[in-house]
């Protein structure tokens, strides 16, 4: 309980800077690096620091730095959709399971058990690989795989709210179940849901780029950090930039989102304890 140090807004500041830069890349990459995928076979692989190429080039003569900036979009957009989608499922099903309970609760927790019985990477790899899924199929599969934890999380916090006096008084007032669930309980669940969503974005980012590292997800030629990493294995001895830049981008982005989500969660928990 001596975590008072986190009170100083160091974490939002430290994590905010890289995240803001990534956000700019996502929104404006088509203007910042319009020629990111332009190939120049004559140049071939060059090491970092070569004139005009801060991080060098790959086999096709594409600039590693420009490719990485252009790859921010596919790295971040899918994970945001995954986190939003799985949290929407989580809120809908978790609220019903937690508040109404009964057979619905049992069914949903069995479904969650089934999906949690296997490692995410394995299921995502098998399903997207066998159906030849592109980017958005991968997103859909990951929404399915992420939803059980969200259902459980929402269910838990709904149950924690159900015993509180304000719910009792809402019941006494004769409010309908749907109204109690979504007008009264839901606003109290949302802060935790938001921080969980942030953590899910980070986790989804790592999973998505893992799949494209294995050659699934984004199509060939599309700029993507995971694909850049998998390509870099063949040029390790000639251009270390092709490895270090995308690797650091994935690690820093995931870590920043994780730290921010963790900080929010902790803050929220402290707040609810003091209340």
């Amino acid at each position: 309980m001596k975590l008072r140090m986190t009170r100083k807004p160091v974490i939002p500041f430290v994590t905010g800077i890289p995240l803001a830069i990534i956000a700019i890349f996502v929104v404006a990459s088509r203007w910042i690096v319009p020629n990111a995928t332009r190939q120049d076979i004559m140049t071939g692989v060059t090491s970092p620091g070569t004139a005009g190429h801060l991080f060098g080039t790959d086999q096709l003569g594409r600039d590693i730095g420009q490719l990485a900036i252009a790859g921010a979009g596919s790295a971040v957009l899918g994970p945001i959709v995954i986190a939003l989608g799985s949290m929407m499922i989580g809120i809908l099903l978790g609220t019903f399971a937690g508040y109404i309970g009964g057979w619905l609760d049992l069914l949903l927790s069995k479904y969650a058990d089934l999906l949690l019985a296997l490692p995410t990477t394995l299921v995502a790899l098998v399903v997207t690989g066998l159906v030849d899924g592109g980017y958005w199929v991968t997103v859909l599969v990951l929404i399915m795989l992420f939803s059980p934890t969200d259902i459980r999380m929402v269910r838990g916090s709904v149950i924690a709210q159900t015993g509180r006096p304000y719910i009792e008084s809402a019941k006494v007032l004769g409010l309908g179940r749907l109204r109690i669930m979504f007008r009264h309980i839901l606003p109290n669940v949302l802060p935790v849901a938001f921080s969980t969503m942030l953590l899910n974005v980070a986790f989804a980012l790592v999973s998505m780029s893992a799949l494209s590292f294995l050659g699934l997800g984004v199509g060939p030629g599309v700029p993507d950090w995971g694909r850049q990493l998998s390509d870099s294995r063949d040029l390790l001895d000639r251009n270390w930039g092709s490895l270090v830049l995308p690797a650091m981008l994935i690690i820093i982005t995931a870590a920043a989102i994780n730290l921010l989500g963790d900080w929010l969660q902790e803050r929220y928990e402290e707040g609810s304890v003091q209340r």
Binding site: V206, A210, A255
Partner: peptide
Amino acid sequence: IVGIGAPTYAVGLLLLY
């Protein structure tokens, strides 16, 4: 927190390098 988030393949390739 960083370690949980860090992707295995990126860490692996960095160590390998």
